[in-house]
Write a protein that binds this DNA or RNA. Structure first.
Length: 202
DNA sequence: CCGAGGATTATCT
DNA sequence: GATAATCCTCGGA
């Protein structure tokens, strides 16, 4: 692999939409507690930002759950949905500005055997092509909530990886929003993905 | 291949 | 009490 130095806090302090775009091509790194390293290219992201964004957990005000979104950028925000799934976000924007970027899909680069051990019996393309799939694949759960991702200390961070040119980037509306979400937030093009990448979610 | 519906629980109203 | 930034299974074509 190339340089696995964690991205600095300044990177995450930018607007969530910018962070979401710039995270395409970056390398999500996971050092497993039992030993082993997994590296995966980020190929799909979504931005959630601001008090007005009806789709965002950070909307309106602080609650016990969304507190990390109001905190220091560069920390993990991991939450549980549908009684079944963990989803990984990285907090963006300065303290007190509620924002995060959801990591929706990754392309395995290294340590695929560790992923296979957990996601056996399916097509490899389905192992990490979805926000809840990739947390299973990389063994990410609620214990990672609020951890600092600008250091390697907690076994979960993001490195610069490879640059993705604008010509290879696509955007669209965010996926899976609840019925309470109305326009303009419903159609806000705050989802980013790498064109034609087979690991992007459906 | 495709669409519908169930799973299953933390969180907020 | 209702809902959810999803996934998987099952039934039908």
């Amino acid at each position: 692999m190339n340089d696995l130095t964690p991205l600095p806090r300044d990177f995450y302090a930018q607007h969530a939409t910018h962070v979401a775009r710039q995270l395409l091509g970056a390398t999500l790194v996971r050092r497993l507690p039992e030993g082993g390293l997994i590296c995966a290219k980020i190929v799909e992201t979504e931005a959630y930002s601001g008090l007005d964004d009806l789709a965002s957990h950070g909307r309106a005000r602080r609650t016990p759950r969304n507190l990390p979104m109001y905190g220091e950028p560069g920390h993990a925000y991991v939450y549980f949905v549908y009684g079944a799934h963990w989803l990984l976000n990285v907090v963006a924007e300065p303290i007190d500005s509620p924002a995060a970027v959801l990591i929706r899909a990754v392309e395995p680069l290294e340590g695929i055997e560790h992923i296979a051990a957990r996601r056996n019996g399916r097509s490899p393309y389905e192992w990490t092509s979805g926000p809840a799939r990739l947390t299973v694949a990389l063994s990410i759960t609620g214990v990672h909530n609020t951890l600092d991702m600008t250091t390697t200390a907690h076994g979960l961070w993001i490195a610069a990886g490879m640059l993705v040119p604008d010509s290879a980037v696509r955007t669209g509306a965010r996926i899976g929003l609840g019925k309470r979400v109305t326009e303009p937030w419903l159609s806000m093009p705050w989802r980013w993905w790498i064109a034609d990448n087979p690991y992007v979610s459906r």
